[in-house]
């Protein structure tokens, strides 16, 4: 219930009407959206019970490792009611054609693969918010100072998931495991996304805000 309350408000891409239509505009819109969502994610993390008790260094390490997984998981959950479309924001939905034009076809395919996994599972909001928090604490950062404290936080989130499934999905004792087994595909997809946006950064044609750049650099 804490995680449901902590869930951020809807986000809007609001593409700049002064920019000419094209791939640069689409990528600029997505990078701006990601930058604003990062601010929201940092605020969200603080509402995960126990997160703020970690050292500042460990809070930073977890977010630096997991931010793209959290961003993608949010896109995936927003896209569940749609057919072959990715809901990057309430006002920014991309289909296959649009993704191809912006050079994001590979990423579109990978994220859609995840969407299909969660659709098949009929993932619920309670499960999604818990999975997001688990992804943050399971980020396998190599820079954690207090491994035990992070493990304790992860255990409490894992316990919340198991408790929820024990109550709501007694018909499928494997359900918590099935949900956790989607995390490798999420990790793989996030790695691809980071690589892609890093190469866009190197090309230097798309303006990027400072926080997005900072987080992108922390991943490479």
């Amino acid at each position: 219930s804490h995680l449901l309350v902590a869930e951020p408000e809807k986000i809007y891409a609001m593409p700049d009407p002064s920019l000419p239509e094209g791939d640069i505009k689409a990528l600029t819109t997505l990078c701006d959206l990601a930058d604003r969502e990062l601010v929201v994610i940092i605020g969200w993390a603080k509402h995960i019970p126990g997160f703020s008790s970690l050292s500042l260094g460990d809070q930073m390490s977890l977010l630096q490792s997991a931010w793209m997984e959290i961003l993608i998981l949010s896109v995936v959950f927003r896209s569940l009611p749609y057919e072959d479309e990715l809901v990057y924001a309430e006002d920014y939905v991309m289909d296959e054609g649009h993704s191809r034009l912006t050079g994001l076809l590979d990423l579109y395919g990978s994220i859609l693969h995840l969407v299909r996994r969660y659709k098949k599972l009929k993932v619920e909001k309670e499960e999604f918010v818990t999975l997001k928090a688990i992804a943050l604490t399971n980020s396998d950062s190599m820079h954690i100072e207090d491994v035990e404290a992070v493990q304790k936080l992860q255990d409490s989130l894992h316990e919340a998931l198991q408790e929820y499934e024990g109550g709501e999905h007694q018909e499928d004792p494997q359900r918590a495991g099935k949900l956790l087994m989607t995390l490798p595909l999420l990790r793989q997809t996030a790695a691809k996304a980071v690589q892609h946006f890093y190469s866009i950064k190197v090309q230097g044609k798309v303006p990027m805000h400072k926080l997005f750049l900072e987080m992108l650099e922390a991943k490479v």
Partner: peptide
């Protein structure tokens, strides 16, 4: 950590 100053600042803000 100096390189990650925005993240650091946002985590310290008590919002």
């Amino acid at each position: 950590k100096e390189k990650h100053k925005i993240l650091h600042r946002l985590l310290q803000n008590s919002t």
